[in-house]
Design a binder for these strands. Sequence first.
DNA 1: GTTCTAGAAC
DNA 2: GTTCTAGAAC
Length: 758
Amino acid sequence: MDCVAVDDNGGAASRWMKRMARHRESKSVVVILMGAPGSGKSTFCDNVMRSSSRSWVRICQDTVGNGKAGTKAQCLASASSALKDGKSVFIDRCNINREQRADFVNLHSSHVDVHAVVLDLPAKLCISRSVKRSGHEGNLQGGKAAAVVNQMLQKKELPKLSEGFSRITFCQNESDVQAAVTTYSELDPLCTLPSGCFGQKNPDSKFQLGIMKFLKKMLLVVRDMIQVSQDSVGNQVTKEKTPINKLAEQAPASSSNTGKKVEDDQEMGSFFDTNLLDSVPTLAFPSISTADFQFNLEKASDIIVEKVAEYVEKLGNARLVLVDLSNGSKILSLVRSKAAQKNIDSSKFFTFVGDITRLYSQGDLRCNVIVNAANWRLKPGGGGVNAAIFRAAGPTLEIATKERAESLAPGQAVVVPLPSSSRLSEGVTHVIHVLGPNMNPQRPNCLNKDYTNGCMVLREAYSSLFEGFASILRSREKLSKEKGEEPGLKLSTLQDRLERGPVDQISDSNQKVKREGVYASEISKKYKGSQDEPGSSITNFRGGKDKADGKTKGWGSWAQALYQIAMHPERNKNDVIEVSDDVVVMGDLYPKAQKHLLVLARAEGLDRLADVRKEHLQLLSRMHAVGLKWVEKFLAENESLVFRLGYHSEPSMRQLHLHVISQDFDSNHLKNKKHWNSFNSVFFRDSVDVMEEIREHGKAKIKDEGILSMELRCNRCRSARPNIPRLKSHVSSCQAPFPATLLQNRRLVFAPTKDGLS
DNA sequence: GTTCTAGAAC
DNA sequence: GTTCTAGAAC
């Protein structure tokens, strides 16, 4: 152990080395530098190389490709070739985590020692250095640097001897760095350095506390600056899809007009960007089902990486963070290495060790949305993440959750806006509860190691929660647009209006949060689809698919939404505009015309038109009557509309539903032949005809789906059009009367004429 | 049901 | 080169 003490003093170490050298043969050394941009890696190399008697080669990934940025493979090749020539090598790249440096550690041999020098300097310093420097090889300078440094530090994994290093030197300040420079400068060709770890002050510290605190202090300054920059760039900023990055780019440019301070103080750029980084939408989620539900870790990690890869691009600049409480978490390391293999953008997805309810206060990681691995009852307790989140958030979370959903089926997620009264004040705005598949026989709905089903459900769970997050982001964006823009978004659909709510409520901040949550839940609901009765067997999870009756076609999980709404309108208050014992009325989520409602039958087992029999006649006529009532209301508002009520022969969505649709077909959601023909061919069965057929023959005629691919014809003049855009453009101006068949038997419903005829 | 995208059609 | 469709995935 003597050598450790001696080594703290560079000079003494070198005397020791020289003494040892007499007994050792010459060895090359690979020094893997580690540190964020701006930590001084290149300077370290330069300083050593300037005065060393060894022959060093510095391999920098930013220049390894003929002076330009190259690949890791190129770095490795250059390193091998330098070692063959008997030279020693500096690997000058960030090497911030184990995976990044593993290949370089493998360069070790009987003739080559591999060392690590960790430049673990304050982030503050790294940021200000990288912001200030110009002409950096990696083109990492200016405002962008702050973000990159912060990202890197979050991924930092300090090296361990077990990775294969013979020696690790930690430097946490400038004098440590200077001592290390001296040590390596004086390492002559015949010497070796003693093995072991040197200079590590706090082995477990993943983060340098204080850095973020420093940055937080700057928050107020930054806030003022953002105000300045927003004033100068006006609406442009708020309209950008990713204001975070754009703002940083625009701020300096705009400063020539107004923001003198921004331009002058380059270092401010870093705070600026850092604050923005803080506001990058971030979702923290635990690994679903792998703790108490005992899901296989290998399979679970594959699914996490697969789903993250799928969503990380869709989510724009948002970040996804897999969180685990324990440092040695197997799932984290599995996911990390698989994510690295898949080349997932590590600034958008990374893992994090910490308490998911204290990510900001303890880990300096700001997350707007956290995911709860909930139980099916959505109740507190049970231990693990669920207990922790409910405990941290207090009873208001439970109440808010109850308002959204009574329970969850495996694979489902529900987005709950965190009430402002909640105790949880970590910058979290939403909690997404998700229920994963269970492999633990001690818990409900155990799948008994049925991993075919299990993996499916776990995928669904991640899709649901990422969709939930996506919908939060979308409604956020929508909100900021609403604030800036004239409501040019016309309230063309009832759905729109329902989502919007009265205008006076929009200005209320609580209402905003509520609306976000609502919107989110709509989207994820569509996605998650099925929700069986609480506690029901998981084999029914996919609705019709696993049903015993062989005739039922498989309903995809997305096709269950209407069924759920019909059976539990109280859970779907935001979709539903009318509820009674036998029907539920809602706006079509993707209206194909100016007005487009659905009247759902509230009868179990009545999935589609083909299921309808004589005993349902009363229900059909009730659905028709309710539909007509709404038509009347719409016609009173706009007498130029014309309505048609009917069923799709083969619906895509489970649960008998009557379409009430205006005949303008003026909607951006009408996009393809199937959409058009499902309302404008014999595939669409008029409600009046259906009732007559049932009355007379006991069942309704059903047309084959094949009809949907037939030619496109105008619903008025019946002329054929080559494609959807041309058809829509024609339909928007066609004044021809409707075909005679539609005018008969009250298939079309018009506004009453003034003379009383209709 | 929608979204995404390859490749056909123009 | 762009527009549009159709099929797969969800």
